[in-house]
């Protein structure tokens, strides 16, 4: 039984002193959706005549990726990354550290290599350990966890909170970056982000070209 657990839901639980049902959260890897979620191509949005509305719609479509756990898990609101479609805190408990690369004694590279590694002959619920040569957390100012798509959009455009990137650089980052691309190649046992990085990149590019408007 996989449930979406967030810090807030737990504290609400406590505050309300709710009657708590017996259950178990799942620490296993994702139950991969039978059919991958597709992204609508940019052309679908041509019919929206108002450019601002079109821009917003493009971003909302791209938001299926941006707000997918595969992306949010490494854009956490705290110093601890998340895991799984349930977005539970990473186990073992790892910490952001300098440059989002982990801390002395337990850097990300302690477990994450330059590529995904299949786990053979162990837990059926852990099929692979993810990896990428540039494996690291997004800086805290780029935290997406718990934010609305509109807030994320504003943040993406804000130089103070996007690593000083221009819109063009953002388009390139989203569409080309290898670590971003990991979201569509997350290793066995993990549901990939919707669509493809190419389709996502095109949506972001079209969004930029239509004035990079944000959902309200």
């Amino acid at each position: 039984m996989i449930r979406n657990i967030t810090f807030t839901s737990i504290s609400v639980c406590l505050v309300l002193n709710a009657v708590i049902a017996a259950s178990n959260i799942s620490w296993a890897q994702d139950k991969v959706a039978a059919k991958a979620v597709e992204l609508k191509p940019v052309s679908t949005f041509q019919s929206i005549t108002d450019e601002k509305q079109r821009s917003v719609a493009l971003f909302e479509e791209a938001g299926k990726v941006i707000q997918h756990p595969r992306c949010v898990n490494c854009h956490p609101a705290t110093d601890r990354p998340l895991q799984n479609l349930t977005m539970h805190p990473h186990q073992p408990p790892v910490t952001r550290g300098d440059g989002g690369m982990g801390v002395p004694g337990m850097m990300c590279t302690t477990c994450h290599g330059s590529e995904n590694v299949p786990v053979i002959g162990q837990a059926e619920t852990i099929k692979s350990i993810p990896g990428n040569p540039n494996w690291h957390l997004a800086p805290i100012e780029m935290a997406w966890e718990g934010k609305s798509l509109g807030a994320i959009c504003a943040q993406i455009k804000d130089h103070e909170r996007n690593g000083g990137k221009s819109i063009d650089q953002i388009v390139e980052h989203m569409g080309q970056d290898h670590l971003v691309g990991w979201a569509w190649n997350p290793g066995e046992g993990r549901e990939p982000a919707p669509g493809t990085q190419k389709a996502f990149g095109e949506l972001i590019k079209a969004w930029a070209q239509t004035g990079a408007a944000c959902p309200s």
Binding site: R3, I10, C13, L14, N17, I20, A22, S23, N24, I25
Partner: peptide, 17 residues
């Protein structure tokens, strides 16, 4: 702390349910 007695173990799994 919470006014809720622990009736079922483990504590954390139940809290998260």
């Amino acid at each position: 702390l919470t006014n809720s007695p622990v009736r079922r173990l483990p504590i954390v799994n139940v809290l998260s349910a």
